[in-house]
Amino acid sequence: MKIKLYLVALGALLLTGCSQPSAQAGVQSGGGGTIEAINHTKWAINHFSVDGQSGIDAIGPYQGGGGGCCYGVPSKWQPGMTVKVDWESGEASTKGFPGFADTAKYLAWVKKMSENNRQHSAVVPVPDYTGQKTCGVTVHFMPCDKVKVTTSCADYGRPGYPIKDPIKMTEPKVCPK
């Protein structure tokens, strides 16, 4: 019964996410799509959102993911346009995982792993997409808790994709401020 209720609640959440308004209320949407992400760091992205809309997926180090439904950008790009990205980064390792049999050991391991979790928030400029088809938003999580976004319909790593940073990036010992 619990699983059935969970599935119903999850389905309702996904459906309501797809009826969300465009990136800026009252502005006609220029192109809808999903909220995707590329993680260029050694940290896991435990969860993330763009302008309050969930990216749905947790993303491992040096991976892509997401899939939050129905993010639309305004039909016309404006100078100074931004999005707010919130995320939690954390430990990506399963080192020391004790299994589930001993609840006390498992909970102690979860607590230890959660000690590295960090909350982040950034207001990020949206690059000019004038004259281009838009496909939602893709967030790139970069070293030093930096973020880049694009509305491009091209896939990461393909010609025409605007963000060229390699997937595996090394975080410097000291991040610039």
Rank of each mutant, 00 (worst) to 15 (best):
M1T: 09
K2I: 00
K2H: 07
I3L: 11
V8D: 06
L10Y: 08
A12K: 03
L13N: 15
C18M: 13
S19H: 10
S19D: 13
Q20M: 13
S22H: 14
S22D: 14
Q24M: 13
A25F: 09
G26C: 10
G33E: 05
G33N: 06
T34G: 14
I35P: 04
I35V: 15
E36T: 12
E36S: 14
A37K: 01
I38S: 05
I38C: 02
I38R: 12
I38E: 03
N39Y: 09
T41Y: 07
A44H: 08
I45G: 11
I45H: 10
H47S: 14
F48Y: 15
S49I: 00
S49H: 03
V50G: 08
D51I: 07
S54H: 06
I56K: 06
I56W: 09
D57G: 02
I59D: 04
P61S: 05
P61N: 06
Y62E: 00
Y62A: 01
Q63Y: 02
G66M: 06
G67F: 06
G67L: 07
G68S: 12
C70V: 04
G72C: 08
P79Y: 04
K84T: 15
K84G: 01
K84A: 08
V85Y: 03
D86M: 09
D86G: 06
G90R: 03
A92P: 03
A92C: 01
S93C: 07
G99I: 07
G99W: 09
F100A: 10
K105G: 08
K111I: 05
K112F: 12
M113A: 15
N117P: 05
R118G: 01
R118D: 04
Q119D: 10
H120N: 11
P125M: 03
D128R: 09
D128A: 08
T130P: 09
G131A: 14
G131W: 10
T134Y: 12
T134W: 10
C135W: 09
T138W: 09
F141A: 11
M142Q: 15
V149Y: 01
T151L: 06
C153L: 07
A154Y: 01
D155K: 05
Y156L: 04
G157D: 06
Y161A: 02
P166S: 06
E171D: 08
E171Q: 13
K173N: 11
K173A: 15
K177W: 01
